[in-house]
């Protein structure tokens, strides 16, 4: 018989290195004569799309389009150190560094523009849709490129270097008390499973995942991170296990160390909650790791809901499930 169950899982995750370890990211920015710009950071884009996030941050701040920004990263001869692409820190940390650097270069441009427009403060200047001009007076504006070029002829170079450091303190060694991470990210997922009571096989029918991202800088990438996290969570819950014998790996191959295929991952509904994190770039915080956390719990709890057995060791293999069902049957018989 195939029995269905649903489970819920919640998780939290302190992003960044934590415990007072200096968590610093850096970025260089140059605004070019044609109004495009280049961002250099040490942050490796490991496929999650950080470069594209930095392009959006820089473009937003400069009133440009994302494709006007070249992001070049992780070449030690060229780019500054931006820390590891890990700890769910690159959108937040390097995003902050990029934003600071862009603002610094931009403020030089605004200073110059304010003089050009005879505006006593840069507060009166805005960058919008490729133009630079006086706030509230659409007649007085010029293409950004023209202003940059003018500035250049006057010897101004719109370059900058900035760093951003996350807040974190070491915890007390005896009591563990302290504020080790900031910010924390939260998430909750629901899984619906179908358990075959004869074979112990678990099919995951559906996963709904809701994650707190502060601000989704790119909703598509947020959804992609969530789905990827869920799939890894499903592998963790049901399939994956390195088999060791005296320290030797018995399954060092993708045919024996099994990760989910396209048919093993169900329809995933991904949602995000945006409550701005005041210290993040445009309110954003990281999502990479949190996305995979609640899945395990949702699946294990759903198995219990379906067939009334609690699997306490991962992965929840068909063997463990059948065994637990047999034990339960025996206990019921005793009663």
């Amino acid at each position: 018989m195939k029995k269905r169950g649903i489970g819920i899982g919640c998780a939290w995750y302190g992003t960044g290195y934590g415990n007072g370890f200096p968590d610093v990211s850096s970025a260089f920015v140059e605004i070019h004569d044609d109004g495009s710009a280049t961002v250099l950071t040490g942050a490796v884009d490991v496929g999650q799309g950080s470069n594209s996030i930095y392009a959006q941050i820089a473009a937003e701040e400069l009133g440009l389009e994302s494709q006007d920004i070249c992001v070049y990263s992780a070449d030690t001869d060229v780019t500054p150190d931006s820390g590891t692409t890990a700890a769910t820190r690159q959108t937040y940390n390097t995003g902050n560094a990029v934003l600071k650097a862009v603002r610094q270069a931009k403020s030089r441009l605004l200073d110059y523009a304010a003089r050009e427009f005879s505006c006593p403060t840069i507060e009166g200047i805005e960058l919008k849709a490729g133009y630079i001009g006086i706030k509230g007076d659409p007649s007085r504006r010029m293409p950004l490129a023209d202003m940059v070029f003018k500035a250049r002829l006057h010897g101004q170079r719109l370059i900058s270097a900035e760093s951003s450091t996350a807040r974190s303190t070491p915890v007390d060694l005896e009591t563990g008390q302290g504020a080790p991470y900031w910010p924390y990210a939260f998430g909750s997922q629901m899984a619906e499973v179908e358990v075959d009571t004869e074979t112990g096989m678990v099919s995951v029918l559906k996963v709904v995942a809701v994650h707190d991202v502060g601000k989704a800088i790119n909703p598509t990438q947020v959804e992609a991170q969530i789905a990827g996290g869920v799939a890894q969570g499903l592998g963790y819950a049901l399939l994956e296990e390195l088999e060791l014998q005296e320290g030797r790996i018995k399954n060092p191959a993708l045919s024996s160390y099994l990760i989910p295929t396209a048919l093993d991952v169900p329809n995933i509904e991904a949602f995000f909650v945006e409550e701005a994190e005041e210290t993040g770039p445009f309110g954003a915080k990281g999502l990479g790791e949190p996305a995979m956390l609640p899945t395990v719990a949702a699946v294990i709890n759903a198995i219990d809901d379906a067939v009334g057995v609690r699997i306490t060791s991962l992965p929840a293999t068909p063997e463990k499930i059948l065994h637990a069902l047999a034990v339960k049957k025996e206990e019921l018989a005793k009663k």
Binding site: D196, T197, E198, T199, G200, M201, P318, E319, L322, H323, A326
Partner: peptide, 13 residues
């Protein structure tokens, strides 16, 4: 063996 002899019932079905 313990697993397979159980599970075979579902596969047979």
């Amino acid at each position: 063996a313990p697993y397979k002899r159980e599970a075979v019932s579902g596969v047979f079905r």
